[in-house]
Each structure stands twice: as structure tokens, then as C-alpha cells.
Amino acid sequence: MPLIVTRDLRKVFRSAKRSPGALGALRGLFSPVYEDRVAVAGLSMEIERGEFIGYIGPNGAGKSTTIKMLTGILVPSGGEIEVAGIVPHRKRRENARNIGVVFGQRTQLYWDLPLVDSFELLRAIYGIPQDRYRRSLDAFVELLEMGDFLRTPVRQLSLGQRMRGDFAAAMLHEPPILYLDEPTIGLDVVAKEAIRTFVARVNREQGTTIVLTTHDLADVERLCRRIVLIDHGRAIFDGPIERIKNEYGRERTLVVRFTETTSAPAIPGARLESLEGLTARFVFDRATQRVDRLVREVSDRYSVEDIAIEEPELEGIIRHIYTQGYAGEERSA
């Protein structure tokens, strides 16, 4: 049985609509007009134990709202939801024991306290036995290299240090499920890499099920085997990264650098995408065109200095889907 199940999950936010002006405000006070905003519009998915899911979508697609329903913060407007056999918003406290949460935008640590005091408080909250606490803490301090700033008040930490603290705080009670909401936002490459290595290891060694929402597709490409792509509160793709790449990655780019200025170069079977200086980019369909023929054609016709073939990156594919819509089989979903 899957660890996390949602069926036709919905969330509608209702807010009072304000009319402009003092008179409008007054009217709103007595006969408020409500405005509904659908954040999640019928989301169904299943996540198995030990999976590492990339949950991605543009701003306002409903990612955070979904995470908040899975964690029990928000009560769904409709549909079903079950996490490790528990309906999160009904048995919030039991659910909390099973999960760890990292919100990249908001720290869960206490601003004025040294990191280690926050950890001590969490130890008491989760009732972690002293020896197990020591063991996990030592491991985290080593893995996340927190030794230097364990006694520094959180407000004095850099973002990268604070995020590492947040990860340790979310994992101290060794939850089987970890939700990461934009955990690498605003971090430099080194801190990002440290965190990626850490979560990959947690997933691999402890079998922790991880749901990651992020805008950094490099995170997803590096860590996740499966992605769920949502837009307008609906899942428009759910499957392995390879599949989305195969379906959309049929296009390849042939990058040609000429030795001399060439106006309007053309190769049969490929479309000229751009020409900048001596470098031209041709797009072709891998399924219908053979690379060796294209290469031969281009070197027969022009004087060529260098040739390279580029595969599409996940980022490009996702961008394409956001703007053009998903054309795969799950469009009807």
C-alpha cells in the first residue's frame, strides 16, 4: 500500500473581496462579497515508501498548498488524503510524529537561541531518548558541518548555515517522511551541494520518503527519480524523469561553428534556430533525422570549425510545458 495517497484533493481559498474606497469598505463590513480562489483542483497521486519525488510547478500552481495539506496545516476543501494511514488534519499530532518539514522561506528555529538550544527543545518535544538524540546530533553535526556554529544564536547565522540547522531540526526525530518546500532557495552552490548530498544520503540510507518542491530543476535532476508536475492545481505529468525527457527530448540541437561568416546557412531536415556570429544552432528531430547525415551535409556545404550536439535539459522541457501545455497521454487527467 502506498505511503501517501491523495484522491481528488481540492483546496479553495475564500477571501472577502474589498471594494475600493471607504464606502466600499463599509459595505464589505455588512454584506461581504467573497472571492474563491482554487489552489488545488482535484489532485490524485500515490507515493510509495522510500520514493524521492520532485513536486514541481510554476508559482501559484498549488505546490505549497498541497504540502500544507499533507502536513496537516490546512484542511482540504474536498477529496481524500492519507499519509501513513492517517488523515493529517484529523489526527494532526499523530501525523506530526511521522513527518519532518523544511520550509526554505521560513525557519523553524528560534531566532534568539543558539542552534543547539533549538535542538534540545525539539528533543523534549518529540521525547527523543538521550542516547539516540546524541547519536543523531553527532551525525548531523558531522554530515552538515555544523560544529563551528552550534552555539551561535540563529539570527547571526548565514542563510546556508541556518538551512543546515533547519534540516537537522526536521530530521532529529528520524521521521519516515520528509517534506522539503523550496529548501535550496537563495543558497550558494556550495551550500546547495551540501544539502543535496545530505538529503540523497538520508533517502538512500534511512529509506526516508521525500517530497521536494523546488524551482531549481538541478535539484530535481540530481535527486529525484520521479516528478509530479502541477499547473493550475492539477497534475499534468506524473512519472519518471526519463519519460518526460523522452517525450519532449526528441529534439536535439546541432551547434555548428563556421570558420568564416556564413549568411543564412541551411541543412535539409533541420531548422535554423539562431545564428550569432560564427555559431549557428539547428534543431532537429532525433527520431526522423540521422545525426551522421546532418553532420555530413553541413560539412559538405560549409567550412566548419567545430560541431556539437546538445541534449535538452529538464529546465528547457519544463519551460516548454508551462508555455505550450503538456501534450502527453495524461493531458486528460
Binding site: K68, G72, I73, R92, A96, I99, R106, D112, L121, I125
Partner: peptide, 24 residues
């Protein structure tokens, strides 16, 4: 400020957690 979220993801009553935010 959205800092209330954290009280939902911990295994205690929300009010109890509010009362035990270290506050000098």
C-alpha cells in the same frame, strides 16, 4: 507573518506550543 505553520507540524497541542515559544 506565516510563522504559525510550524505549530501544526509538531506533535503537541498548538496552544501549548504557542505558550512554550522561548520568549525571555
Amino acid at each position: 507573518e506565516g510563522r504559525f505553520d510550524r505549530f501544526f507540524v509538531r506533535p503537541f497541542d498548538t496552544l501549548f506550543q504557542v505558550l512554550t515559544v522561548p520568549s525571555r
